[in-house]
Nucleic acid binder design. Structure first.
Lengths: 219, 219
DNA sequence: TGTTACATACCAACTAGTTTGAATGAATCG
DNA sequence: CGATTCATTCAAACTAGTTGGTATGTAACA
């Protein structure tokens, strides 16, 4: 029998990905090491060879999620010379696209923040870092937009970025309990309409491309 | 020694309140029955006399939180003939007041929704009910306001109520990881400004009474 | 005197982490 | 080029501590 069925990197990756999957579904505290091993198709020997503890893989899962986020958002976040509002709009499109995937729209950082946000565990700092990363990227876009287009109202980019982050996390929280991503899409539409009040006259740049869901329907 | 130190109702209540406290700090999955007993100052015998299982007290904690919410929000939610926008504004004031308390601004329903929103546990349905209750109350206020004041934009009361709920839950989630409630206050200010776009000209009704934190400061 | 409301001691199942050893492949040596 | 060494990578069995829950006895009240 071939004992080493794949490269150690693949084994490690499959363990982290299994952890991410389980966190998304039931949180980290409720996730057992044995469960992670079963999901990854390896034994505990492999687990504790690659990770010193359960805590260790928890931190790895947060980091993995953060790096994946960087990749997914990079088309909007990376400064390629396009208008910052166009890029902000693209970010909202990317967020919208999450709701159209087969798997539920949930977030590892949101889960871990909720579970450990008030504890002394290292997860707290890890989550804070990832949330901070997201917020800073969005704040940068908003600051650039503010410089380029004279905003209609005074606003602090970081405050608005925090608002978008809160709305995003809260949307996923409520939507998953309701079992339908529609609420997230509606909230993204409201976020758009709010951003439009900050940048009046930029409706063309901040318009949702695929109008599957109408914003603010019914009178 | 007096074995029965207080009434059984008090014992039961202290167990539920201890559970609520522990959930708020570390979530329910990470909370041990022994911990609840220690916090409540009773033994396991008392616990399992009043509650059939850990799951049982989990549901009781959600319900307890929901009923407390009803009481706290009742000044704004109960129809006393005042203008619906005034009452909506009062609700935002109440939410703001949570951020000024000594204990961190967190929510049992938010915690449990995050932990069990995608599971088959009975918690999911309990949380859904409480979230639904909150949303329906807010939607009612918005619907009444819509009837009384001609809104500036078309909007669905339930959609906007869900937006406020999402923002509220997300704010608590992010703020507790950051360790400061300021973010929540800023988000409430943004919520106000958004509601003002729905009801233009009602700035006097939707203004924050204690202007400790300015909305959208810095240019 | 019977029922309620617990306290105490206990247990079976589970959980994170350990130990031991074997299969593997790469490096080293004859 | 083939044999040998050796660290890496993991499987399987095991362990100490924890956890939800139970069995039993008893003090207080009605």
């Amino acid at each position: 029998m071939n004992r080493r069925r794949k490269s150690p990197e693949e084994t490690r990756a499959s363990l982290v990905e299994a952890t991410v999957k389980l966190i998304l579904g039931q949180g980290f505290a409720a996730t057992r090491v044995d469960e992670i091993c079963r999901e990854a198709g390896v034994t505990k020997g492999a687990f504790f060879h690659h990770f010193a503890s359960k805590e260790d893989i928890g931190k790895a899962a947060i980091d993995w999620w953060g790096r994946m986020g960087d990749r997914v958002y990079s088309p909007a976040w990376s400064d390629d010379g396009r208008d910052p509002l166009t890029r902000l709009n693209q970010m909202l499109e990317i967020m919208h696209s999450f709701t159209e995937r087969p798997d539920p729209c949930v977030c590892v950082v949101g889960m871990m923040s909720q579970e450990y946000g008030q504890t002394d565990t290292p997860y707290r700092e890890c989550c804070q870092q990832e949330l901070d990363n997201w917020t800073k990227q969005v704040a940068k876009l908003l600051a650039e937009a503010k410089k380029k287009h004279r905003p209609g109202t005074r606003f602090d980019p970081l405050t608005v970025a925090n608002f978008l982050n809160s709305l995003w996390q809260g949307s996923m929280l409520i939507a998953k309990t309701q079992g339908q991503p529609r609420l997230i899409q509606d909230n993204l539409a409201i976020a758009r309409s709010y951003l439009l009040t900050l940048f009046p006259g930029q409706a063309d740049r901040l318009r949702h491309r695929k109008p599957k869901t109408k914003l603010n329907q019914t009178s």
